[in-house]
């Protein structure tokens, strides 16, 4: 009798530790209800607003990256044998600036990034060896070096060649390239750091 009273007093003092089945159900319902209430209390409007603001910021950042990459400067990985004495076979990181082709500041001896006329999804790195109106003489056949050919670069075109004459697919194969395909001028080699330095006009 006394124990029953004690039990009842205990139940009254901490109601959550009283475990009958119906009590459990009520507690569960209550917790769900409080959870729902808490969800309703959350400021959904401000959460949504913040989400929109965050995604807008991200979109702005991506746009900024695109504009910088396409109009100011970008970084290109150059690999392949065609520019061998100047750029390594294994791949150099090169800083490419995009302004000078737009303002006609590309000339003889500049290393340029060109969209390949043979495959529009490929970009090639070559050196300009002739501007429009220049006459260019080149070995017509790779194997027989006595076959020479001279052509005049037509209007609005440039003549590009690799530094490694023996392993380069360039204007000698596909002819002069329209100036509109020149994407940028390689300025500085960034990687490897031991060879860091400007790629000024050579030749």
């Amino acid at each position: 009798m006394q124990r029953e009273e004690e039990k009842a007093a205990f139940r009254d003092s901490n109601p959550t530790t009283a475990f009958s089945r119906t009590d459990k159900g009520i507690i569960l319902m209550g917790s769900i209800r409080s959870l729902v209430k808490r969800m309703q209390d959350l400021p959904w409007r401000s959460v949504a607003k913040e989400g929109v603001e965050r995604s807008f910021l991200l979109a702005k950042f991506l746009c900024f990256c695109h504009v910088t990459n396409n109009y100011i400067c970008s970084i290109a990985l150059v690999c392949g044998p065609s520019m061998l004495p100047t750029l390594n076979l294994t791949g150099d990181l090169v800083l490419v600036e995009r302004i000078s082709p737009r303002i006609n500041r590309v000339g003889h001896g500049d290393i340029v990034i060109v969209r390949s006329p043979e495959n529009p999804r490929k970009t090639i790195t070559k050196r300009i060896t002739g501007m429009e109106g220049d006459s260019v003489t080149f070995a017509y056949d790779r194997r027989q070096h006595d076959r020479w050919k001279t052509i005049i670069v037509p209007k609005g075109h440039v003549w590009v060649q690799g530094d490694n004459v023996f392993a380069s697919n360039d204007s000698r194969n596909f002819g002069p390239v329209p100036y509109a395909l020149v994407q940028g001028k390689a300025l500085v080699r960034i990687w490897p750091p031991s060879a860091f330095g400007s790629l000024g006009p050579g030749l």
């Binding site: 609005g156 329209p178 100036y179 509109a180 020149v182």
Partner: peptide, 14 residues
Amino acid sequence: SHGDVIVFRSPSNH
């Protein structure tokens, strides 16, 4: 595809 109307840069004047 054939017959598409395209916009392109002039090859003689960029």
